[in-house]
Simulated scan of single mutants.
Amino acid sequence: MTQFYFVRHGKTEINAEGRFNGGTVDSPLIPSGVEATQRMAQHLKTTPFDLALTSPQMRAQTTAKIILAENAQAPELTIVEDLREMRLGDWDGQKIDEITAAYPEDLKNYRTRPDLFAAEKFHAEPYTSLITRSTKVIEEVAKTHPNKKVLVVSHGILLVALLNTLKGVPLAKIRESGIVDNSSLTILSYSKEKTNIETWGQTF
Rank of each mutant, 00 (worst) to 15 (best):
A52D: 12
A52Y: 07
L53W: 14
L53S: 08
T54F: 04
S55T: 08
S55L: 11
M58G: 13
A60L: 05
Q61I: 15
T62N: 12
K65S: 14
K65P: 05
I66A: 06
I66E: 05
I67M: 04
L68Y: 02
A69F: 06
N71T: 04
N71R: 04
N71V: 11
A72F: 07
A72V: 07
A72S: 10
A74C: 02
P75E: 10
P75F: 04
I79H: 01
I79F: 11
I79C: 12
I79S: 11
V80F: 10
V80L: 05
D82S: 09
L83H: 04
L83S: 00
R84K: 13
R84F: 01
R87K: 12
G89S: 11
W91A: 03
W91R: 03
W91M: 03
D92Q: 08
Q94C: 12
I96S: 12
D97W: 13
T100V: 06
A102F: 00
Y103R: 03
Y103M: 11
Y103G: 02
P104M: 06
E105V: 13
E105S: 09
E105T: 13
D106A: 15
L107A: 02
K108D: 14
N109I: 02
N109D: 15
N109R: 06
Y110M: 10
Y110E: 03
R111M: 15
P114F: 00
P114D: 03
P114E: 03
F117L: 02
A118E: 15
A119Y: 08
A119L: 08
E120Y: 11
H123A: 14
A124W: 02
A124D: 02
A124M: 03
P126T: 14
P126Y: 01
S129M: 12
R133V: 03
T135V: 09
T135Q: 10
V137P: 04
I138W: 01
I138H: 01
E139W: 04
E140M: 10
V141I: 15
K143L: 14
H145N: 14
H145R: 07
P146V: 06
N147E: 15
K148E: 15
V150M: 08
L151V: 04
V152Y: 00
V153E: 10
S154Y: 01
H155M: 04
G156T: 00
I157Q: 11
I157N: 13
I157M: 09
